[in-house]
Design a binder for these strands. Structure first.
Length: 586
RNA sequence: GCCCCGGUAGCUCAGUGGAUAGAGCGGCCGCCUCCUAAGCGGCAGGUCAUAGGUUCGACUCCUAUCCGGGGCACCA
């Protein structure tokens, strides 16, 4: 509907007498927006205010000229100039009526727009190291990333969802060592578990699987394992040196093949768990991209070669550095360490280059707020490799704090006492979790209230919105119980009868949905969908309480039913984007 | 020191440079013989952190300052 007004204003501006306006119009003009106050009509345009200066006239006079040049439209009933020079548009009832009919016709496609114009976007999110189960922080990433991807898709982007699996590197080696040490314990060995090892119960579970599969074949004596290793922190040493030595010893005692066997068992188990967890959360991916495969297929070497060819790599202190400062980063970055190992950063830029090579226009990464420093360097890497730096867009997600009632739930990763996503889902349910996670802007720290998320009360926005959907279904059941059926044609034909303020308000709100999708997608702002749905539910509940739908007058009845069915459709479409169910009954 | 995010009603938060700054919760007062009261209506509640600046117009943009969170690795 907004599009219609924009077209009208566009043609009016083009039809102004030559010389009225300077040749070049500033970008973003004219702006057409919904009015906040119904007294100002349905849409307002500020073109006269923005262009008056350049046109060397007063805003009111320019507004007069624009209005005079507006092409006639039977969907606009009235145009007013108000305030300092706003042009206010009052839509004709027919405009809303055709839009309601459009909602019913389009069904779940209502709100899908083409503004993304088929740009191909790859959205990478969660990508947690497979060293343990997902915790509540990852849950926010999952919900935010999945909803953002859905939004972009609705706005016409071609969207690919990807999880980058860090299945190489030191942390995974430490996990493998942790599993093996727990296995040795099961075999009867006794020793002090490294302070930097992974201590969660899941490690013991994987160790038990290892024991079941291998028996005592991989057992080595404690003295063999720990002999002459640098001391752990409690013994006055360095915990990193210690755990690295344990990994090294494990590799030499078991050999590469068996080391890999333990490693893969841990990786497979945890990754499978993460995958199942996310699936149960309604979060799925097109691809789980293996970091190891990057190295195996030479992608990292190719990226580094590309950097060298361009002359952006130099050697210093035995390491190889990428001249990131030449591309706006604050310092140069090591790509190959003194010991010959490629850094995590090297595989990162290789991965992002590979994303570009797969043809994606927009590389959208969802990362924790603590990763912000990483943006400039990957962008620098892309540019150095001849890719546009702004093809990478990073959305940072702030931290989550759990509350139970008014009490903050203490969490500590160190002690292993962190709450997992699975536990949270079991406690509050998938729908509440999905909605609560994206209720706040990603830039905002999130206080997640478990009691509120669980409460079956009017305080809980999940139920409030779902209830609106269920109520419409309930009305339809009542209709059937009374031996009546909804006549869509009759309803659409009679929409002109809906002149109650509650009906007007509901129509205005629900027809805003396509605009909301565009806006929320453009702003990468899933929380806008939640706020909108709450507003839509409010308009619906108010209507529900004010007027009966199942009335004797068939025309009025069918018209009202057409309206509430359209509202239900929009609620369902919105919940779909959020990954929240739309129940028929509560 | 440098970089990122936040500071808006008692609380939790919305607010694409526009008209009188909004919502939910909490507080107070009301509404079920009627399609689900998991609902609805009303009232009270604000120096938009502070000080400058840009603009016809600033919660929104710029600069500085204060407060809170996070980041500044040859870690992942």
């Amino acid at each position: 509907m907004k599009h219609l007004i924009e077209q009208l204003v566009g043609s009016a501006l083009a039809a102004l007498p030559p010389g009225t306006l300077p040749g070049d119009r500033p970008a973003g003009v004219p702006v057409v927006e919904r009015t906040r106050d119904a007294a100002h009509g349905d849409f307002a345009c500020n073109a006269a205010l923005q262009l008056a200066k350049a046109a060397r006239t007063s805003p009111r006079k320019l507004a007069d000229a624009i209005v005079a040049a507006l092409p006639p439209s039977d969907l606009v009933s009235r145009v007013e100039i108000a305030g300092p020079g706003f042009i206010n548009f009052f839509l004709a009832p027919a405009a809303y009526q055709t839009e309601i009919a459009r909602v019913l016709d389009a069904g779940k496609a209502y709100g899908r727009t083409a503004s993304g114009s088929s740009r191909r976007a790859i959205v990478e999110f969660v990508s947690a190291n497979p060293t343990g189960p997902l915790h509540v922080g990852h849950g926010r990433h999952a919900a935010f990333g999945a909803t953002l991807a859905n939004l972009l898709e609705a706005a016409g982007y071609g969207v690919h969802r990807e999880y980058y699996v860090n299945d190489a590197g030191r942390q995974m080696d430490i996990l493998a060592a942790s599993v093996w040490l727990r296995y040795l314990e099961l075999c009867g060995e006794e020793f002090a578990f490294p302070s930097n090892g992974y201590r969660g119960d899941y490690v013991r579970r994987i160790a038990a699987d290892l024991e079941a599969a291998e028996g005592g074949r991989l057992r080595r004596a404690t003295h063999e394992v720990f002999e002459a290793l640098p001391p752990d922190e409690p013994a006055g040493g360095d915990k990193d040196d210690h755990i690295d030595a344990v990994v090294h010893r494990m590799r030499s005692l078991l050999g590469d093949a068996d080391f890999r066997r333990v490693f893969d068992l841990g990786l497979g188990d945890i990754l499978g768990d993460i995958r199942q967890d996310l699936e149960e959360f309604g979060v799925t991916y097109h691809r789980w991209y293996s970091e190891r495969s990057l190295a195996d297929e030479g992608a990292i070497d190719r990226a580094l070669a590309l950097l060298r060819e361009q002359g952006h790599v130099y050697e210093q202190d035995g390491a190889q550095w990428f001249r990131a400062t030449a591309f706006g980063d604050e310092k140069d970055r090591v790509v190959v360490r003194e010991n010959g190992q490629k850094t995590y950063f090297a595989s990162d830029i290789a991965y992002h280059l590979e994303k570009r090579e797969r043809g994606f226009d927009l590389l959208l990464d969802v990362l924790g707020a603590d990763h912000h420093g990483y943006v400039a360097r990957v962008r620098a890497g892309l540019e150095a490799m001849g890719q546009p730096g702004d093809s990478l867009e990073v959305r940072l997600v702030q931290f989550v704090t759990l509350f139970r009632g008014g009490e903050k739930v203490q969490m500590s990763t160190r002690s292993g006492e962190f709450i997992t996503l699975r536990e949270l889902r079991r406690e509050v349910g998938r729908d509440a979790a999905r909605l609560f996670y994206v209720m706040r802007s990603n830039d905002q720290h999130l206080d997640f209230d478990l009691e509120l998320a669980k409460s079956r009360s009017n305080d809980n926005p999940v139920y409030y919105v779902q209830y609106a959907h269920a109520r419409v279904s309930s009305v339809l059941r009542q209709l059937a119980d009374r031996g009546l059926a909804f006549d869509r044609e009759a309803g659409v034909a009679a929409l002109g009868l809906l002149d109650d303020p509650h009906e007007q308000s509901l129509m205005r709100t629900l027809t805003r949905w396509p605009e909301l999708v565009d806006l929320a997608a453009a702003q990468r702002a899933p929380h806008m969908v939640v706020h909108y749905l709450r507003e839509l539910a409010t308009a619906f509940h108010a209507y529900y309480n004010a007027l009966p739908f199942i009335v004797d007058d068939g025309a009025v009845r069918n018209a009202r039913l057409a309206l509430v069915l359209a509202a239900q459709q929009v609620v369902r479409n919105g919940l779909e984007i959020l990954g929240v169910s739309a129940p028929e009954t509560m």
